[in-house]
Design a protein around this nucleic acid. Structure first.
Lengths: 341, 341
DNA sequence: TATGTTTACGCAACCGGTTGTTTAATCTAT
DNA sequence: ATAGATTAAACAACCGGTTGCGTAAACATA
């Protein structure tokens, strides 16, 4: 393996018998450098295929032009779409993006957040893991004046920018829709209890019932346990049926749960939507593939990503803001919750 | 916004009236530093919550302990699972991971690969975009002696490590399975022509037909166009039906295409699997959700990620290897290709 | 011609680490 | 007591950029 040496400013400087600082200034078109000198330096840089060493740049400028992103799981369509939104604007603004997964684990989240911290990211965008209750690892960022933006799943005990969808309203709309479709015994399959979204959606569910004069029935509020996967939905649904509870509609915390529920219903030969209507949350691509197609709340994932990075960049540029943007989810009605035949 | 200043080695050195180099050595337990001095330095470092500046480290050591990953899209379950495999081993070995998407665009791929290059990643793991034919942007890495490992979608014209599944064999198995299930007119919905996987799978398809004495029929080799999305499958299938071509089985380049095909078949009231059997490739979670459940080839995505990073780390540690690992896909038979009733 | 202003560039410190080489102090052996 | 070996720590260069400040030469003005 032969050694390869990158061309540096010093190399160019020596060859042209000028100083390093002149090269530095010439390359960024600084006015105090003469035209011929500038031209000569730029030409030689091109010839040597010179690229500035961004490590050195970062060290002297104390900015890495890098932002960190932590999501629970990349494999969720929602999160990867948010990331695409983040990347789009980040690249346009000259920022790189480092993406990390917490894998829904608090410990892992602490580790990656420290890794990103020591990588000197200029800012952080996070959706916390379902286990996270302590936010000390994020406080470290605030202490060092590194801006943070939370999206979707926020830390309840931190004052920071956030971008969320109106979970309360979304849940309310879903339940309202079910009521207007003639349902009365509406169950809610809830998510991990620690997450704010879980609580907000439960509130929206309850309030919609109340608004339409339907009494809340504790039997119909189902806890799916820690997971947000299909299996959790299937199991919880079977358990519910085994308990003899039979709703005429189900609003699930997210699409995978909804689909798990649907599979259990079908296995039990319960017709969807005639006997039980189902509505999910997130509108993952899978919602259009199941039969019947699943009604769901569309979260503007790309927009959430864009908004997050906007807020972050504003802070990086020195604005001292704490803004909590709330976007609205949109109800997409499909076959799984249509009116009874 | 009050200024925050990280503690540096110099701060510690000054307070203890020793030199910066002594601090550096004390913190890494170098033998040439006395016990008391060492203790004092380590204690003070703890007290100040000192963390080494990894930018400075990278600059002097010329290693960022970072590896770059470029995938076409994060939103594919396959890719995000591969990434999980990569991360697992990377973190264990003290490496950070920077993930980028090419968004299936050649131009974007060039940009992100240059970004990663100037970020001085110690190595690169790539699955190329479907547009990529030119690999000059990756050659730059080789020139600078930065190791690269390709997975799944490789550059045909580069000598480099790679990790792939045996596409030929996978396709062969799928088609063989269909033949053994009593099918004779087997269509193949192929992928983007530039990708090797497309070609390999076509070969496997043809050879399996040949092996069982079935003549290849050009009408049954369907081009899905540039995309690998569901819509492409749906459209191509409808077009095929409109042309009056009616196979009794379909092997699709990937699950989304297969599912698109299934949706068109259902829309045309063609029974799956009785009239037409369907097999996909990749075994995405969606395969178990469609009805009937889709037979598919399982790619060991996590394992592919692990293998890729293994090969990369070996090269980073100085081994001059060019290994092409080929893993085997496993056929998972479900309802969509079961024997005729 | 003497003075003041530009113009064009060099000098050197700095960012925060790593590391080869010296040096001073202490210890060992003769 | 003194030369030689050890030990403990300092010095200083280096990684590759950025930038404030200083200054010589060229030019304009009086």
């Amino acid at each position: 393996m032969k050694e390869y040496k990158e061309a540096t400013m010093l190399d160019i400087a020596r060859e042209l018998k000028v100083s390093k600082s002149t090269v530095s200034r010439a390359l960024k078109d600084h006015p105090s450098i003469g035209k011929k000198t500038k031209k000569a330096i730029q030409d030689l840089a091109k010839k040597y295929n010179y690229h500035p060493n961004s490590i050195a740049y970062s060290l002297s400028k104390k900015s890495t032009k890098t932002i960190g992103v932590i999501v629970p799981l990349l494999s969720h369509y929602y999160f990867s779409t948010v990331i695409s939104g983040i990347e789009e604007l980040a690249y346009k603004s000259g920022y790189k993006v480092i993406i990390c997964q917490s894998a829904e684990s608090y410990d892992r989240e602490v580790i990656v957040s420290q890794t990103l911290l020591s990588s000197k990211v200029d800012g952080l965008i996070v959706s916390i893991s379902r286990e996270t209750v302590n936010s000390d690892h994020f406080r470290l960022y605030q202490e060092k004046n590194i801006p943070i933006v939370f999206f979707d799943r926020v830390c309840a005990d931190m004052e920071a920018c956030s971008v969320t969808v109106d979970d309360y309203k979304g849940a309310f709309m879903a339940v309202e829709h079910l009521i207007k479709a003639g349902r009365r015994r509406i169950a809610h399959f809830a998510g991990p209890p620690l997450l704010q979204i879980t609580q907000k959606r439960i509130e929206g569910y309850k309030d919609a019932l109340f608004r339409y004069g339907i009494a809340f029935d504790g039997d119909l509020l189902i806890d799916c346990g820690a997971g947000l996967e299909q299996e959790n939905g299937s199991l919880a649904a079977q358990e519910m049926l085994d308990r003899g509870v039979k709703p005429d509609a189900i609003f699930a915390i997210c699409d995978p749960i909804a689909i798990g529920v649907m599979m259990t219903l079908k296995k039990n030969r319960i017709n969807i939507p005639d006997e039980v209507a189902v509505v999910g949350f997130c509108d993952e691509p899978i919602a259009r593939v199941v039969e019947p197609q699943l009604s769901s709340l569309v979260q503007p994932a790309f927009r959430i990503g864009e908004t997050s990075i906007e807020l972050l960049l504003q802070q990086i540029q020195g604005q001292d803001i704490i803004e909590k943007r709330v976007l609205t989810a949109e109800l997409r009605i499909r076959e799984s919750s249509s009116r009874r035949g």
